[in-house]
């Protein structure tokens, strides 16, 4: 699947004048972000759609649509995390068949899912969206220094959990 830069600000600026064009350009990436933040939640599409609905109300006044969308998605997924039991969160990941995902990736994602929401969101935004820490801080509504401490603790836990040192990209 061809995948453009996740929620790229430059692309959004070009589409700002036209909400529908903006929607078309970013809806799939928004769903992917919601999908990752909810560990494969079946309602990732609904969450992304809700984010656009909320954004539509203020679109004419939003200077950085990408950042606005990202922040809204992170918040909506956090709400879902609040309302769902951890075990329910794992259902989405479990629904993905083993043939779809290698065992090492599944293990990694299970440990990621077990992290507190903010730690998970930091890792998703940093390692999937390639977002710098100040952008992540904006999305989460925390200080940049908090992003770093969250990432540091999340990675420390992942490193501890991932005792298997296989490294897919180093082979």
């Amino acid at each position: 699947m061809a995948e453009g830069p996740p929620l790229d600000d430059v692309a959004f600026d070009a589409a700002k004048a036209d909400f529908v064009a903006f929607y078309r350009a970013q809806i799939d990436q928004a769903i992917r972000l919601a999908w990752l933040l909810t560990s494969g939640g079946a309602d990732a599409g609904d969450i992304a759609q809700e984010a656009f609905l909320r954004m539509r109300k203020h679109f004419d006044h939003v200077r950085h649509p990408n950042a606005y969308l990202r922040t809204t998605l992170v918040r909506l997924c956090a709400e879902r995390h609040r309302s769902a039991e951890r075990e329910q969160l794992r259902l989405g990941l479990m629904a993905v068949t083993e043939s779809d995902l290698p065992a090492t990736h599944r293990e990694t994602l299970e440990h990621l899912t077990a992290l507190p929401y903010r730690q998970r969101a930091v890792l998703v935004l940093r390692y999937w969206a390639d977002a710098p820490d100040d952008v992540i801080a904006d999305a989460l509504g925390v200080r940049t220094v908090t992003v770093r401490s969250l990432a540091s603790r999340a990675l420390a836990r992942l490193r501890k959990e991932l005792t298997d040192d296989r490294c897919p990209e180093s082979r």
């Binding site: 799939d28 990752l36 995902l101 990736h105 990694t108």
Partner: peptide, 25 residues
């Protein structure tokens, strides 16, 4: 480090399994 490499790779492949938008605005 290896954990981060694994994480990046897992996220990329998992993201590819996300559903596509069912309809346009």
């Amino acid at each position: 480090n290896r954990a981060e490499v694994r994480l990046r790779s897992a996220l990329r492949e998992f993201a590819a399994l996300a559903p596509r938008a069912e309809s346009q605005w």
